[in-house]
Simulated assay, not measured.
Amino acid sequence: MDTAQLIQHFNQGKSVTPGTPEHDLLLQCSNEAMRITAELNAAYHSPEQIRELMSQLTGKPIDATFTLFPPFYSDFGKNITIGKNVFINACCCFQDQGGIHIGDGALIGHRVVLATINHGFLPEERSCCRPAPVVIGRNVWIGSGAVVLPGVSIGENAIVAAGAVVTRDVDPGCIVAGIPARFVRSIAGMSPQEKQSYII
């Protein structure tokens, strides 16, 4: 099995358990991700160098419009897809085995966690990794400290309030907040004054 096959395995929603070839390769990829993120986070890098390191991490081209403020953490890296004009602020953690897709124009605040792996509830199944993707739509804004859990899609133009824990899909153009995150209001229904002063 190679990395492309492992990603396909994850993208098909198949679990990975210790002692299998899939798990052994996952550990190799995780160590590579730790090496690259350690380099990324250990010293100052120019925006161009950051994009090059992120390209190494993801195994994909990174657009010139992408901006990242390190430090940044990922325990796999190879199943992240990033669109154009994306901004990721400092101290974010992406657990991307199940796939993280970030649409054009997305803004991701400090300390955001995107998690794509769950585990079995029974003690004997606890070490089994069960993947499900996180999809961030175009022009989504995720506030500082938010957590997005496996299998969640956030519709375009939506806003996730700071500190929210998102356990279910978010409709386009909506604001969600809280633990677990709940619908607060539609952006389309806000007056111009509210859009200038609303605190999330």
Rank of each mutant, 00 (worst) to 15 (best):
M1L: 14
M1P: 04
D2W: 09
D2P: 09
T3P: 06
A4W: 08
L6E: 14
L6D: 14
N11W: 07
N11F: 07
K14M: 14
S15F: 13
S15Y: 02
P18I: 13
T20W: 09
T20E: 11
T20C: 06
D24R: 07
D24N: 10
L25T: 12
Q28D: 12
C29S: 13
S30F: 07
T37Q: 14
A38F: 03
A38T: 07
N41E: 05
N41V: 03
A42E: 11
A43Y: 11
A43Q: 12
Y44K: 00
H45A: 12
P47E: 05
E48D: 14
R51I: 03
R51K: 12
L53N: 04
M54A: 11
M54E: 07
Q56T: 10
L57Q: 05
I62C: 11
D63L: 01
D63V: 03
A64I: 14
P70K: 09
P70Y: 12
P71M: 05
Y73K: 00
Y73D: 00
S74N: 15
F76I: 05
G77M: 10
K78F: 15
K78P: 04
I80K: 01
I80C: 01
T81N: 00
N85I: 08
V86P: 07
F87Q: 07
N89C: 07
C92R: 03
C92M: 06
C93Q: 06
F94I: 04
Q95P: 03
Q97C: 10
I100T: 08
I100Y: 03
G103Y: 07
G105F: 05
A106R: 00
L107R: 00
G109E: 01
G109I: 01
R111K: 14
V112F: 06
V113G: 02
V113Y: 04
N118T: 11
H119R: 11
H119Y: 11
F121Y: 09
E124L: 12
E124Y: 14
S127V: 14
C128E: 15
C129V: 08
P131D: 05
A132N: 02
A132H: 04
P133Q: 06
V135N: 10
I136K: 01
I142P: 00
G143C: 10
G143Q: 02
V148R: 00
P150G: 10
V152G: 04
S153Y: 00
G163Y: 01
R168H: 08
R168T: 07
R168W: 05
D169T: 06
V170F: 02
V170A: 12
D171Q: 15
P172Y: 11
P172I: 10
G173L: 13
G173H: 11
G173T: 13
C174Y: 11
C174I: 08
C174T: 12
V176T: 06
V176A: 07
V176R: 07
I179P: 00
I179G: 02
A181S: 09
F183W: 05
V184F: 10
R185I: 14
R185Q: 14
I187R: 01
A188S: 08
G189N: 04
G189E: 08
S191V: 15
S191Y: 15
P192T: 15
Q193V: 04
K195N: 08
Q196Y: 09
Q196M: 13
S197C: 15
I199M: 04
I199S: 03
